[in-house]
Design a protein around this nucleic acid. Structure first.
Lengths: 260, 260
DNA sequence: ACCTGAACACCGTTCAAGT
DNA sequence: ACCTGAACACCGTTCAAGT
C-alpha cells in the first residue's frame, strides 16, 4: 500500500504495433544500426549472458553506441525481446509438406511422410531450439506468441496433427499434450545445461551431485530403483530415451483414442 | 564487452544453505517480523502485483519496515522467492495413499483409488495452483525445485505412476509427459487470466479479440474448423474439455504401452 | 533521420551504525 | 538480536538537444 498505485504494464505486442521506422526510400547516408543487426546482437548477448544478464545499456555497449540509440529502432525492451523470440522460433526446421501442403512434390526425397515421423521431427526441433537458446523458454512464457515464425510453427504443428486421424475437436488437446510436454522438457534441459556451465561441471557430474544432495534429504522417500531403471551411460543418453519414450506414449494415446 | 566481466549468479538454493536465524531460545522481547510473516506477505504481493511488480523495497513497505530489515531473515531475494515457491506447492492436496502408502486405512472413505483417478486429481490440483498463483510458473522454471513441499508433491506423483503398471524404466517418461503438459497448460491459462485482469476484459471477450486479430494476419492459414470444433459455450468450458481430453490421451498411451 | 546526454524513478545488496 | 540509513552499482525510459 505504501507506494500507492502502480502502472500495470500492458504494452501490446510488437506484432500488433506499427513499425517504428519507415522503409528506406532512396539511398540515404549509410547508417550503422538497423533492426536486423540489433536483434542479432540481442540474441548473441542473450546466449552468452542469459536473460538476467541482458540489458538495453549492455546491448548498446555491445553495438558501440549510446544507450538510447537502440530506442530509435525499437519501442521498448519488451518489443525487442519479442523480436528475438520470433527469430529463434524461425530456426526451427519444418517438414516441407506441413509448410506447403499443396505444392507439387518434384523432389522424390520430399515425399510425404508419416504423421508420427513428422511429429517427432517437430518435437525434436522444438526441443533443440529451447536448449540452444536457454532464454527462449522464459520469453515464450511471457509474451503473446504471434510473430510470423511462431505462427508458421504452430500452423505446421496443426497440419501434422490433422493427419493423425484424431477428430477435429480433439486436435488442440493432442497438440497441447505434445508441445507443452516438449516445452517443459526442453526448458528443464536448458536450465540444467546452464547450471552446468555456471558451475563449470559436466552434465554427468552435476547430475550426480544433485542426486546425492537430494537423496540425503528426509523428504526423499521414493525408491531408487526408478531413478536407476531409466539408466543409460550418460545423462544425455538417459534424457534422450526419456524424451523419445514420452513421445511414444503420446503417440500411442492418439492412436488409441482416434476413431479409425 | 565494454562493461567487462560480470558475475554469474549462482547462489545455491535456500534448501541447501543453513537457516540464517537460529531458533528462538527463551522468550526474548517480542519481534515484529519472522520468516512466516515475510513469506505470507511475499505471496500476497506476488498475487496482487505479479512477479515484475514485486521488489524487496515494496515488500518492506508492505510490512511497515525499512528496506533492509527483511535481509535479517532471508539471505537474498532469490531465497525468498524459493520459499514462496515451496509454500505455493504446499497448497496442493495429495491423495492420501500417495502420501502414506503403508498406513492402515481406518477410514473407509479413504480406500485406495484407481491410479487414473489419482493422476487426474494431482494434475487438476497442480493446474489449479498454477492458475491461483500466476507467478509460480516462472519460479518453477527458474529455481531448483527441491523444497519440502515440492519433494512431497513429486514423490506423490511418482507413487501414483508406479501403480500404472508401466515398467520402472518408463515411469519418468510418463511423469514428464503428464506433468510438463500440466505445467505448460496451467502456465498459459494463468497468463491469459492475468492479461484479462490487466485489460479489464472477461476471458471470453479477450479470447474473441485475440482470435479476430490473429485471423487477420497473413501467416494464419489454418482451417478455422479446428478452432471451432473444440467449441463449448465459454472459454473456460473449452479449456476444461481440452485439459481433460489431453489427460485421457496420456492415460490411454500409458495403458497401451505398459506390459500387462 | 538518426544519435547523444542528462535526468528520473526505480532496482538488489553492502556496510557501518544504532538500540 | 534486530533494525536503520546512506551509499553503490545498476536498471528502463523520457525528454530536450544536437547533427
Amino acid at each position: 500500500m505504501a507506494t500507492g498505485s502502480r502502472v500495470t504494464r500492458q504494452r501490446s505486442s510488437v506484432w500488433l504495433s506499427e513499425r517504428k521506422t519507415p522503409r528506406r526510400k532512396g539511398d540515404q547516408q549509410p547508417v550503422g544500426l538497423d533492426r536486423v543487426k540489433i536483434v542479432a546482437a540481442t540474441m548473441r548477448l542473450l546466449d552468452a549472458e542469459g536473460l538476467s544478464g541482458f540489458s538495453m545499456r549492455r546491448l548498446a555497449a555491445e553495438l558501440g553506441v549510446t544507450a538510447m540509440s537502440v530506442y530509435w529502432y525499437v519501442e521498448t525492451k519488451d518489443h525487442l525481446l519479442e523480436l528475438a523470440l520470433d527469430a529463434a522460433m524461425g530456426e526451427i526446421a519444418l517438414p516441407i509438406e506441413a509448410v506447403r501442403p499443396a505444392e507439387g512434390c518434384a523432389d522424390p526425397l520430399a515425399e510425404p511422410r508419416d504423421w508420427r515421423e513428422q511429429l517427432r521431427q517437430l518435437a525434436s526441433e522444438y526441443r533443440q531450439v529451447l536448449v540452444r537458446h536457454p532464454w527462449l523458454s522464459a520469453l515464450l512464457g511471457e509474451y503473446l506468441n504471434i510473430g510470423p515464425n511462431s505462427m508458421t510453427f504452430s500452423n505446421a504443428a496443426q497440419a501434422v496433427m490433422r493427419n493423425s486421424g484424431l477428430p477435429d475437436d480433439k486436435i488442440t488437446s493432442a497438440l497441447a499434450l505434445v508441445y507443452q510436454f516438449v516445452y517443459g522438457f526442453g526448458t528443464n534441459e536448458a536450465r540444467f545445461a546452464a547450471r552446468c556451465r555456471a558451475a563449470g561441471l559436466s552434465q554427468d557430474e552435476l547430475f550426480h551431485d544433485v542426486m546425492n544432495l537430494v537423496e540425503d534429504r528426509p523428504e526423499f522417500d521414493e525408491p531408487r530403483q526408478i531413478m536407476e531403471a531409466r539408466g543409460g551411460d550418460t545423462v544425455e543418453e538417459m534424457r534422450d530415451r526419456e524424451f523419445t519414450f514420452a513421445l511414444d506414449l503420446a503417440i500411442a494415446g492418439i492412436e488409441a483414442l482416434r476413431t479409425p
